[in-house]
Design a protein around this nucleic acid. Structure first.
Length: 259
DNA sequence: AACAGGGGCAACCGCCCTAGC
DNA sequence: CGCTAGGGCGGTTGCCCCTGT
């Protein structure tokens, strides 16, 4: 049994949005807010698929969007986040205020990929091109100023009371992680993550907290053995958030020393 | 001036996840 | 517990514009 289509395709417009359609969508959302995307087109008098409306709003019409070229700082941040998270564009976008996942994805595919290739780095692995996994395991760690080598410091502040199934997954993984630490005693897997530029922690049920949980779990996945991760550097510092209250360097003596 | 090729980006597609029933 | 609708996400497509010939 197939899934029902998200909308009646026969009577919907496709392709580029007109100014009139944009205006209809904007005024409808201003009046009624986001949500109920399936019923929105009809209510707003648009001959569009609900998904199409959502995408148009999120990627183009939202008032808080930052249009224009990416800065060098944003470039580097995207590269670093991608090295940690992979193609989790929405999570990466969550760290770049005013940027959308689609925008970042496009920018990655058109600009940053090429940038990394010109540096001799594989855009997917962020490792020097031509390096095999066994090479990675056997080689002595080498520092490269442009490669995303950081030791992930992991601190699970939610232990014990989180309803998030990720936590149990974490615990299941922890033994194998410990084994890896034994293999690589220089590996520091303590991970300290917080929302940058945010002094008040989000409440448990906000979209921000869900995204944070997702971000943390993605980072947890990223802390699988990384032989090059040899220097303990607070992630906040590595990502350029030293001034953030989230930076735990003050409480991690080793990280402070190695910053 | 005309055409071809490539790059950039908006939009679409199809799958996945989750809340609600 | 299973099903479904709604929403979200990553990958892909296709159009438009720019540049080179």
């Amino acid at each position: 049994m197939g899934r029902s289509p998200c909308c009646e395709k026969a009577h919907t417009n496709k392709g580029a949005w007109t100014k009139e359609e944009d205006q209809r969508l904007i005024s409808y959302i201003k009046a009624h807010g986001e949500g109920c995307w399936r019923s929105l087109p009809k209510a707003a008098g648009l001959l569009r698929c609900g998904k199409s409306c959502r995408l148009r709003w999120i990627n183009y019409l939202r008032p808080d969007l930052k249009r224009g070229n990416f800065t060098d700082e944003e470039d580097e941040l995207i590269i670093k986040l991608h090295s940690l998270l992979g193609n989790k564009w929405s999570l990466i976008a969550g760290r770049l205020p005013g940027r959308t996942d689609n925008e970042i994805k496009n920018y990655w595919n058109t600009h940053i990929k090429r940038k990394l290739l010109s540096r001799g780095l594989d855009p997917q692995t962020h490792r020097p091109i031509g390096e095999s996994y066994s090479d990675m395991l056997n080689s002595t760690p080498q520092r490269n100023s442009t490669s995303p080598e950081i030791a992930i410091s992991y601190t699970n502040d939610n232990k014990g009371n989180s309803p998030n199934p990720i936590d149990s997954q974490d615990e299941a993984n922890s033994s194998s992680v410990s084994e890896e630490v034994q293999h690589y005693p220089e590996l520091n897997l303590e991970l300290s993550i917080s929302l940058p530029f945010q002094s008040n922690p989000p409440s448990a049920n906000t979209a921000e907290s869900k995204q944070q949980a997702s971000f943390n779990s993605a980072l947890t996945a990223a802390r699988t053995p990384q032989p090059f991760f040899t220097t303990a550097v607070c992630l906040c510092c590595h990502l350029g958030f030293q001034s953030s209250q989230a930076c735990r360097c003050q409480t991690i003596p080793n990280a402070q020393a190695l910053r």
